[in-house]
Simulated scan of single mutants.
Amino acid sequence: MGEAPTPGRALFDDDFVRDAVAAILDADSLPRIVQSGHPVLRAQAMPFTGQISADQLSRLIELMRRTMHAAPGVGLAAPQIGIPLQLAVLEDQYEVPAENAAARNREPLDFLAVLNPRYTAVGSATASHYEGCLSMSGWQAVVERAKTIDLAYDDELGAVHTRRLSGWQARIAQHETDHLSGIIYLDRAHTRSLASDAEYAANWARPDIAAARETLHF
C-alpha cells in the first residue's frame, strides 16, 4: 500500500498553476468551486512569484470576485477553484439583522485581493461562531478564532501591506488564508457542533452559539 499524501504537502508546480489559470480564463463560464476531497484543497499553495502575467492576474482576481458573488460568499481562495496559488479575495457587503451583526462584530468589508497573506493574532481574545465554506457546501460548524489579527499581504502590484482586522472581518481573513495552507474550517471546528444547513436553520441560526453549545455539548 502506498503512502497517502500528507495534508499541506506541496503537490503542484509553476507549470500546473499557469495551465490551470489559462484554462479557467479561457472558459466561457464561471469556474466550478471544488469540494472537500479535491487534492488542491489539502496542498500547500504556492507563493505568488510572477508565475502569471499582470493581465492574467488582474483577470483572475476579477473572475474570482464574480465567482464569490455568484456562490454567494464573502471570501474565495484560489485553491477553491483548483489553482494552488496564494491568492484570495474577500468582500462582505451583505445586510444582516442588527442583532446578528452586533453579536458577531460584523462590519462591512470592502473588496480586497490578497497575495501571499499571513496573519498573526493580536492579543489572546477569541470568538466562537458558526462558519460555512463554499468547498463544504451544505454544512456549518462552530470555529473558535482570534478576535483581532494583523493581516500581512501583497497586492497585485507587488506592494506590501499590513492591515488590522477584527470581528467577522478577521474571521473571513483567517478562513481564506487557512485555505492557502491546505486547512479547511472543519480542521479547526468543534465537530460536535457540525450541522447541515437545514438543521442549522431550524435550530441554531441565532446571534450567538449559547444554545448550540449547551444542547450539543461542545
Rank of each mutant, 00 (worst) to 15 (best):
A88C: 11
G2T: 08
P31F: 10
L194T: 00
P39R: 09
T67A: 15
I83G: 05
A103E: 06
G8F: 11
D14T: 06
A27H: 06
M46S: 07
T120L: 12
R213F: 08
C133H: 02
F111H: 13
Y153N: 07
V34D: 02
S128M: 10
A88N: 02
T162I: 14
E156I: 12
T120I: 12
Q140E: 02
I24L: 14
A170S: 01
R188I: 04
S137H: 03
A210G: 08
A54K: 14
Q169M: 09
L157S: 15
A173M: 09
I24M: 11
A113C: 04
N116T: 04
A152K: 13
E199N: 03
A10C: 13
R118C: 13
V89N: 04
F48A: 05
V122N: 07
V96E: 08
T120S: 13
D150G: 07
D155A: 05
G182Y: 11
R106E: 04
A102E: 08
F218C: 12
A202V: 04
R65Q: 03
R106P: 00
E62I: 01
E176M: 10
L63R: 03
H190Q: 14
I183A: 08
I61S: 05
E107T: 00
E199P: 00
M68V: 11
D26N: 14
A121H: 06
T49R: 15
E214C: 04
Q51C: 10
S193T: 13
A71Q: 10
L41I: 08
G82V: 04
H175G: 15
A4V: 07
G82Q: 03
P84A: 08
V142G: 03
D92C: 09
H161C: 03
I184C: 11
S196T: 11
K147I: 01
P39V: 01
S193K: 14
A54V: 08
P31I: 07
R42P: 01
H179D: 02
W204Y: 10
D15N: 14
D187T: 03
S128E: 12
F48C: 03
E3D: 09
R32D: 14
E131A: 07
I149A: 11
G167E: 11
R65K: 08
A43D: 12
R145T: 04
W204Q: 01
D197P: 00
S29D: 13
R145G: 06
L60Y: 01
L87Q: 06
S36T: 12
L109S: 05
G8M: 13
G138C: 06
L76K: 12
D15G: 10
L180R: 08
A71Y: 07
I83C: 02
D197C: 02
T215S: 12
H179I: 04
T162G: 00
R106H: 06
P72W: 06
L57T: 02
Q140G: 03
Q80A: 07
P84I: 00
I184N: 09
